[in-house]
Structures are given as C-alpha cells and as structure tokens.
Amino acid sequence: MQTTQAIEVQLRGVPSRRRREVRIRRFFFVAAATSVVISVAIIGSLAGEAWTFISNVDLGSLTDIGWYPRRGYFDISTLFVGTLTVAGIAMLVAAPLGLGSAIYLSEYAMPRTRRVLKPTLEVLAGIPSVVLGFFALTFITPSVLRPIFGDQVVGFNMLAAGIGVGILTIPLVASVSEDALRAVPRSLREASYGLGATRMATSVRVVFPAAVSGVVASLIIAFSRAVGETMVVAIAAGATGGSLFGWNVFEPGQTMTAAMAALAIGSDQVRGDDYAFQSLFFLGLLLFFVTLLLNVVSERFVRRVRQRY
C-alpha cells in the first residue's frame, strides 16, 4: 500500500517535464519584467543628464525673458505657459465635441448608426500627428483663423496648433467616456423613463452623473495626451530657435515637447558648455512626471466607475 506522500510525488509528474515548465515560466517572467526595466531606464537616463543641467546651470536663467536654450536663457515658465495654452485650447475643442459624440453614440444612436459612426471616429484616431500638424499649418491657419481673426494671426501660431491637438484627442475623449456611459446599468435608465423623464433628462440627470468619474478620466487622459503631443505643435506653432514669454495665441509659441523637438533637430550644433543638450533631458523628466501624475489620477477615476457597477 502506498503512502499519501508517494501518491503525491507520482501526481506531480515527470521531473524533467516539471523542470521544463519552470524554465518556460521563468522566460515569460523575464519578458514581463522588461517593462519595469524600461521604466527604470527612462528615469535613469533622464535623471542623469537633468541633474547635470540643474547643478551646472545658473539658476537665475531658469526665470528669464524666454526660452532660448542655445543662448543660455532657460525660462521654464515660457514653456509651461505655452504647454498650458495649447493643451487648454485642445481641451476646448475636444471636450465638447468628444463628450457630445459620446453621449449621442451611447444614449441616442441606433445600433446601425453606431456601427457606421464609431469606426469613422477610430479612423480619425489613427491619423498620424504630423498629418494634423500639416493640416493645422496649411488649412486651419489660412482658411479658418485668418478669415475670422484677420491679419493678427501669424502663419505659425499656438491657436492652430491647439485646435490640431484638440482634433487629435476628440476620439480619445469620445471612446473613453462612451465606455463609461455604456457601463451605467440599464436599470437606471429604465427607472428614469418609468418616472416619466424624457430622454434628455435621463441622459443629463441620470446617466451622466452616474458615469461622471469615467468622463473626468477621459478628459484627464486627453489632457495628458495633449501635453505630450509634439509634432502638431512643432509644425504648426513654429518657434524653432526659442520663444519669448507670452500668452498671445495668434503668435508662435513653444510647448515643452516642441522645445525638445526643436533642440533635437539641431543637436549636432549643441556643443560646449551652454547645457542646451542637457536641458532636453531636464524637460523630458518634467514631462514624464507631469504625464505620470495625470495618468495615475485618471486611473483612480476609471477604477471608481468599475467598482461601482
């Protein structure tokens, strides 16, 4: 008669087969762990050069007349204002259009209409950002902004760039908030109709409040995306060498990302002790933490929706 121990050993299977399983499992674990290595590499590579920048550069030059890295003016506030302006304009475009589309798709559209309209939004989401930059530069500025605002609109301007970035983020707002709206249980809508509410009242007073965390999350994700968007601004807002501090949306401006792109194009010329090259990494580190913070916050909101229903 076998002891239970012996049966257990037998059930565990052939040792060579088990060892092979362990090896395979380890291989897959290493692949998954690579993602952590990438994060560490990003922070490590950014922090090193950023530290060189911060410890060597004259701190007074961080608050100056503007951002001209090659001449030693590193006014960060210029770039912050530029980034906020462009991302703010983008949200003014993307939030109403994206939300309106989301509510229509989730609450009003017939299934058949939805099947046609949703893929079209996804096509818009797949348009590369350089294409929207070109569109902003060659269509939005000359054919939309000039006729409305007149000649004060400079060829390269932040308004066109902001609108371009906004167009890019419409599908993002629409799809994330539509998911949130559709996650609201049907019983809530039926209860509302049962009380005699119209479709509008149901959408605005019942479904929307129930999904508000998801909607907020979609806006935060879109804002984070707008802050990180490079090419639209680099193409349509001009300001290659640098930019003076300014709020005027009809004039060229620079965001953190566009400033990095501008520095990178001429990085062969970045030599000597002016720390323009290092400033690139300093900006990158700032950008990394800003978007990280936004993404973490939006994730909290998304999770709140999921927990409730």
């Binding site: 952590v36 990003i42 590579s45 950014l46 990180g228 990095m260 990158g284 950008l287 978007t291 994730e299």
Partner: peptide
C-alpha cells in the same frame, strides 16, 4: 508590473526618443 505597463503606454512618445538618445 501591470500598473507600470499602463503608465508606460501613457508616456509621451518624445520621452521614448530621449531614452533612445541616451
């Protein structure tokens, strides 16, 4: 690891450019 991957997906593409550059 999961949270890390979701965050990596949200990192702006230009930051990956910096990683590649460094």
């Amino acid at each position: 690891i999961n949270a890390n991957i979701r965050n990596l997906a949200g990192v702006p593409s230009i930051v990956y450019g910096l990683l590649g550059l460094a």
